[in-house]
């Protein structure tokens, strides 16, 4: 079943002269782990905003074409209705926490929905536990590291038990080990709970191992849409300047110099495995 489906989605910001999204038609299935990537300014964030109705309800502007999320047509439902089904995590963790305690922040969405207190308590505890930050529950946001803040932001969204979680460059303010932890948390939500994940990311080396569907955008259009292996190995990806995983790039370079690995690796683990096989074969 398609969780997110767009047909000919075209959008212009009220202040913009150029179309930010142009004829975007994609389908995201339930339980997928989608990585969305592309050069800066190509419209990734804008597309994410469409998923929960921030575009067009919050930003205004002209939205053409069709988009439905978990069966709801975005243009006909308000942001808070969509928020029950789609959770957004943004780039800057600091600006996503506004309560004085972590716990209170995690409860915020549920409070807005008018969920009874006992239920809020249960779900907050569950969300904190799932993201591994129970020990932070009474800390103030400004006492936390960026990585911890971002995990809190994920817990905030998780507590609302969405079907889809959209994360817009959640690790760009973090160091590699912090990023790794975030990816692990997300991947677990995807695997264990079947939450559909859309992850916007430039650092494909780390992220691509978890993904089974990659979208590449360029200048408002989705130019590549498919399996990670296939997408990363394509000529287009390299030309646009997508940060193709090093393992994939290695196999391409080897191929250019006459070494055929037979398969295209995406992660370094895969690459070493394939290389070992090839070396043994020769």
């Amino acid at each position: 079943m398609a969780v997110i489906e767009t047909k000919g989605l075209t959008y212009t910001y009220p202040s913009g002269k150029k179309r930010t999204l142009e004829d975007v038609s994609i389908t995201i299935e339930k339980g997928e782990f989608v990585v969305l990537t592309g050069p800066s300014g190509c419209g990734k964030t804008t597309l994410c905003r469409c998923f929960n109705g921030l575009v067009p309800h919050f930003y205004g502007g002209k939205l053409e074409g069709d988009i439905s999320v978990t069966g709801l047509r975005v243009s006909e439902h308000s942001i808070h209705e969509l928020a029950r089904h789609v959770g957004l995590v943004f780039q800057n963790p600091e600006n996503q926490l506004f309560a004085l305690f972590v716990e209170k922040d995690v409860a915020f969405g549920l409070e807005n929905l008018g969920v009874p207190r006992d239920e809020i308590r249960k779900r907050v505890d569950w969300a904190l536990q799932t993201t591994g930050i129970e020990n932070l529950r009474e800390r103030a946001p400004h006492e936390l590291s960026g990585g911890q803040q971002q995990r809190v932001a994920i817990a905030c969204v998780l507590a609302m038990q969405p079907d889809v979680m959209v994360l817009d460059e959640p690790t760009s303010f973090l160091d590699p080990s912090g990023a790794q932890k975030i990816f692990e948390v997300i991947s677990e939500l995807n695997k264990e709970m079947g939450i559909t994940v859309v992850l916007v990311e430039h650092r494909l080396d780390l992220a691509s191992r978890y993904s089974n569907h990659v979208l590449v955008m360029n200048e408002g259009r989705v130019v590549l849409d498919g399996e990670p292996r296939e997408v990363f190995n394509s000529e287009t990806a390299r030309l646009i300047g997508v940060g193709v995983p090093k393992a994939t790039r290695l196999s391409q370079v080897l191929e250019e110099s006459g070494v055929d690995l037979g398969r295209v690796p995406v992660t370094s683990g895969e690459a070493s495995h394939i290389l070992k096989e090839v070396l043994r074969r020769d």
């Binding site: 942001i79 943004f90 800057n92 600006n95 506004f98 409860a107 008018g114 207190r117 308590r121």
Partner: peptide, 25 residues
């Protein structure tokens, strides 16, 4: 910053009901 905050609030169902509940009393 305040724009980003507003975006986050909206994404967490700000204003969904008149009868907001509260974790603490």
């Amino acid at each position: 910053r305040s724009l980003e905050l507003a975006e986050t609030m909206e994404s967490r169902a700000w204003g969904a009901t008149e009868k907001r509940t509260n974790l603490y009393v």
